[in-house]
Simulated assay, not measured.
Amino acid sequence: MPAPVIALDNVGIRFRRNRRGRRSFKDLFARRSRRSRPGEFWALRGVSFTVQPGEAIGVVGRNGQGKSTLLKLVTGVVLADEGTVHVAEGVAPLIEITGGFVDDLSVRDNVYLTAGLHGMTRKQIASRFDDIIDFAEIADFLDTPYKHLSSGMKVRIAFAVISRLEEPILLVDEVLAVGDKAFREKCYRRIEELLAGGRTLFIVSHNERDLRRFCSRGLYLDKGSLVLDAPIHDVLAKYNADYGIVPA
């Protein structure tokens, strides 16, 4: 068996609830203690699993159970307070998808800026620029300030850029819930192309059809703990049974 591309071992991450004011250096140092303090809660605790190259993993659970935090750990946006997180390959994050775009820059400049921030060289961006614009279907708005685009158009250009990255791991956090039906299907086909090419997929979604379409395996999170790591149909069955959900 090949080495895993993602490995979490007894991972925990802790946050504070509604703490006003700035934390002192003493507070920051004390945060490394394993013991919880008043006003703190564990968003994740004792989470362990591995992901093999080319797997498609769906993460399920109610809102506020640690799903998005888990993806942010994998991207390195947040760090674990305990345990270890190992990510062996680069990550293309479809998380908070329009983050990093600058309102006053044109669409053209934002494509170069955002792709560059994700590690693409100017030459690489130029070679994929037409594909990005064609996919997003916004060729008539290249010199329009980004702030004048509709929310749907912003999602189109963001997905088009991120999905053209060559990173082996694709992280998706509910982004497919937005946009018109035709464009969502276009995104679905693009993800299927990436999976067929050997990419690894890690997706958070409340849409069972999406999860069953893309994923063979699921992780069920509840109250920050990993309840079940199993084939996706078993994970969805347990999740639905626990909360009396009738599948659509």
Results as ranks from 00 to 15, higher is better:
V74E: 08
V102A: 12
G90T: 06
I132N: 00
T75L: 00
A139T: 13
T69Y: 01
Y112C: 11
V111G: 02
D109V: 06
L117Y: 14
G58M: 02
H118F: 11
E82T: 02
I97G: 12
K72S: 14
Y112M: 09
V111E: 02
V78G: 05
V102Q: 14
L105R: 11
G58D: 04
I57V: 14
L105N: 12
N63I: 10
L79C: 12
D130S: 15
T144I: 15
P145Q: 03
D109G: 08
D103Q: 11
H118L: 07
Y146W: 11
A80S: 09
E137V: 00
V85H: 09
V78A: 09
T98L: 09
R62L: 10
S106Q: 12
I138K: 00
Y112R: 13
D81C: 10
I132D: 04
A115G: 03
L149A: 12
A115P: 03
A126Q: 07
R122F: 04
M120C: 01
A80D: 07
D143C: 00
H118I: 03
Y146Q: 10
T84E: 12
F129R: 09
G61W: 03
I95E: 02
R108K: 10
G76Y: 04
L70M: 05
D130W: 12
T114K: 13
L113I: 07
G90P: 08
H86N: 10
E137I: 03
G83Q: 04
D134R: 09
F141L: 08
E82R: 05
F101K: 11
R108Q: 08
G66L: 07
L142W: 05
T121K: 05
R128T: 04
R108W: 07
H86E: 13
D81L: 08
G61M: 02
V111M: 00
G100W: 10
K147Q: 12
T75Y: 00
V111S: 01
A139I: 12
T114P: 09
V102E: 11
